[in-house]
């Protein structure tokens, strides 16, 4: 997606990632607490978007960041409420700086 600048996204479809846990819950972040610290799979890249964590504080010219659709099994999030054989899942859009490879 970013070949003109000579580099590409860090992740591609199928990659396993973990979402960071971040205690800045009073700041403007778009990564809900219920998904922080959880492991999921990259579904697709959405391209680059302005970083809402900067925009919220008027930093209009901050660099754009890669955004990914990431899928998690619900059984891995709500461990007690979901049957082990369930394939029900949830997808969230998560910015690259929240993700690490596993």
């Amino acid at each position: 997606m970013d070949n003109l600048l000579g580099h590409t996204e860090t992740y591609s479809a199928g990659d396993l990632v973990r979402v960071s846990y971040d205690s800045r819950i009073m700041e403007h972040v778009r990564t809900p607490l219920y998904i922080q610290g959880k492991c999921g799979t990259i579904v697709k890249s959405h391209g680059k978007f302005a970083n809402p964590e900067k925009l919220a504080y008027g930093l209009q010219s901050s660099p754009k960041v890669h955004l990914y659709m990431v899928e998690f099994y619900l059984v891995n999030i709500w461990t007690t409420a979901y049957a082990n054989d369930s394939h029900d899942s949830i997808c969230l859009d998560i910015f690259e700086h929240w993700l690490t490879s596993i």
Binding site: R30, H46, P52, L74, S89, I90, D93
Partner: peptide, 12 residues
């Protein structure tokens, strides 16, 4: 039939 919930957390 599996359910896939999609939480719209960004500009998509």
């Amino acid at each position: 039939i599996s359910i896939r919930v999609v939480d719209s957390t960004a500009e998509v």
